[in-house]
């Protein structure tokens, strides 16, 4: 499903090259669950963002279902992200000033779906994630665990095949973590492809991991 070929990423700062990723090769098949581990600052988020077409590699290629993404214009990458990829961020990244339901339904707005229909589609997802009583709360009034579940609902709104989660459990309590792991298991059973980055062994222990990679000094092992 996702092929990473000779992928390199270099950042430029004050005229200096800072290599982050170097010649990575990876293949993730449909329905697999892949975990990428590594010390802080090793480039896990960068790799995830490139695989999710949020950033472009300096060299190399990400191929999603035999479709090369490096040459795609920005709006095609957006289309890809909208229809096939769901992002779950470490910091939740919800929009303050909107309710849980409105945040969860944000991916539907560019599709021209009106607010009533957006509500109709988002409600079952929030119920599934145990947020039936929190739908109309402002996200700033939710706990960390609740916010992360809203973020998960947002990631799943367009029914993506690929879910990328960047340290999804790092800002939640143990109970919420269990809950989220349960959700991930459900998604894997439904045939979703998941790529996660995480420090803790909890995910590795709890999910049917197909492949585990370690990213260190820009290389995968």
């Amino acid at each position: 499903m996702i092929d990473v070929k000779s992928l390199s990423k270099v950042f430029f700062q004050h005229g200096e090259e800072i290599p982050i990723l170097a010649d990575l090769e990876m293949t993730v098949s449909r329905g697999e669950c892949v975990i990428i581990d590594g010390p802080s600052g090793c480039g896990k988020t960068t790799l995830l963002n490139i695989m999710g077409c949020l950033a472009r590699p300096t060299r190399g290629e990400v191929i999603i279902d035999r479709r090369r993404t490096s040459h795609l214009p920005e709006h095609f990458l957006c289309e890809l992200r909208r229809s096939r990829i769901g992002f779950i961020f470490q910091q939740f990244n919800l929009l303050p000033g909107f309710t849980a339901l409105e945040n969860a339904a944000l991916p539907l707005a560019p599709l021209g779906i009106g607010s009533k229909e957006r509500r109709r589609r988002a409600e079952p997802l929030l119920d599934f994630l145990g947020l039936e009583d929190r739908k109309d709360f402002q996200v700033t009034d939710l706990s960390g665990g609740e916010q992360q579940r809203v973020a998960i609902a947002r990631a799943l709104m367009n029914n993506p095949e690929i879910i990328l989660a960047d340290e999804p459990l790092s800002n939640v309590d143990a109970l919420t973590a269990e809950r989220i792991i349960g959700v991930f298991r459900d998604l894997l059973e439904k045939g979703k492809t998941m790529i996660l980055t995480d420090h803790s062994p909890l995910l590795a222990r709890s999910l049917p991991i197909t492949n585990a990679y370690r990213l260190e000094r820009g290389r995968l092992s």
Binding site: R56, T58, R59
Partner: peptide, 8 residues
């Protein structure tokens, strides 16, 4: 070309 900065 392949340079992402130029493309951007």
């Amino acid at each position: 070309g392949p340079d992402p900065a130029q493309r951007e």
